[in-house]
């Protein structure tokens, strides 16, 4: 009498265990995790006007967002020359969706410290954010004689058969946290795509997998400062980073600490285990993003078909 019961219970239990180990659990990330933040995206470059300070809002995950609602066009934005203790109020330009300073008395100088203050009301909450940047010293300069740029055949070799790669040799700037070479294809498209790129994947296939053409069009390669006594350093552009024939713009940045942290962490918050970790933002208060500074120099590369 007991045995059939045990048999039945074991059968039911086994079935329940098997049944419970089937299925596809669902995940929903809703607004409960959301906290409003002022998003700052602004860089000061000596000699350039202060015209590209972007002040946006963040938005909850899993929603459809109207892009026109992203800029915080009514934010109060102010830049202060810390040494001179002089503040400059920035105004919103609806055409560019950036904040800019329209006067002529704010000239960004090497080695000087500037503070950005932003206040805005977001989702009914008054928010404030501030950040300080110190512009790297003067000195960054691409050595145009030692560098390899201009017209270069794709995977060009020397007479001895050695591969010649684009190379940027530069004089370092004091007080910079890192050097970043911006590599931008100026004529990116299907007709100029290098199908022989050793990474070996076709553009259509890559786009099918969710990559955007801009992911290949724009890239960057960074380096820590080399020996301070050795004022020259270099960044080589490996050919596998070149995806298109035609002109490339190569902009070398000597960036400050804020930019260094932002560049290396903002788009790198997911670890190999898929979990997220915190980026490093040098912003106080309710802000995220970057207020940084850099010194730049630019050359052009033209990749020719073999």
């Amino acid at each position: 009498m007991i045995k059939p019961k045990i048999k039945r219970i074991s059968g039911v239990l086994g079935f329940l265990l098997l049944f419970s180990s089937c299925g596809t659990p669902t995940i929903s990330v809703d607004e409960s995790t959301y906290e409003p933040k002022i998003v700052i995206n602004g860089f000061l470059i000596p000699g350039n006007p202060v015209s590209k300070i972007k002040i946006d809002r963040n938005f909850p995950l899993g929603q459809s967002i109207d892009k026109n609602e992203i800029p915080l066009n009514d934010a109060q934005v102010r830049i202060t020359d810390v040494a001179a203790d002089t503040a400059f109020t920035l105004s919103y330009n609806p055409d560019s969706a950036w904040f800019e300073y329209s006067g002529t008395d704010l000239n960004i100088k090497y080695g000087k410290t500037y503070r950005l203050d932003v206040s805005a009301t977001l989702d009914g909450r008054p928010l404030q954010a501030a950040s300080v940047t110190t512009v790297p010293d003067e000195g960054l300069k691409i050595d145009r004689l030692a560098s390899v740029f201009g017209d270069l055949t794709y995977r060009q070799t020397s007479g001895e058969g050695n591969l010649i790669s684009p190379l940027i040799v530069y004089e370092q700037s004091g007080n910079s946290a890192f050097y970043l070479l911006s590599i931008s294809a100026l004529d990116a498209g299907f007709s100029t795509f290098i199908y022989e790129n050793p990474m070996g994947q076709k553009l259509e296939k890559m786009l099918d997998r969710g990559r955007k053409i801009e992911d290949l069009q724009y890239s960057g390669k960074w380096k820590r400062p080399d020996n301070e006594n050795n004022s020259y350093s270099f960044i080589e552009v490996n050919w596998f980073r070149i995806w298109f024939y035609g002109p490339y713009r190569l902009v070398l940045y000597a960036g400050d600490q804020n930019y260094y942290h932002y560049y290396n962490t903002s788009n790198n918050v997911m670890g190999m285990d898929g979990n997220l970790h915190e980026p490093i933002f040098d912003i106080e208060g309710d802000g995220i993003g970057v207020f940084g500074s850099a010194v730049t120099d630019t050359v052009y590369l033209n990749v020719l078909r073999p």
């Binding site: 590209k52 972007k54 809002r57 963040n58 931008s184 940045y253 979990n275 970790h277 993003g289």
Partner: peptide
């Protein structure tokens, strides 16, 4: 345990790249 994003936002990695 997992860390979820509290929000998303737009960020430009490099100033001269319009992306």
């Amino acid at each position: 345990p997992i860390t979820l994003p509290s929000s998303t936002y737009y960020g430009a990695g490099i100033p001269d790249q319009d992306y």
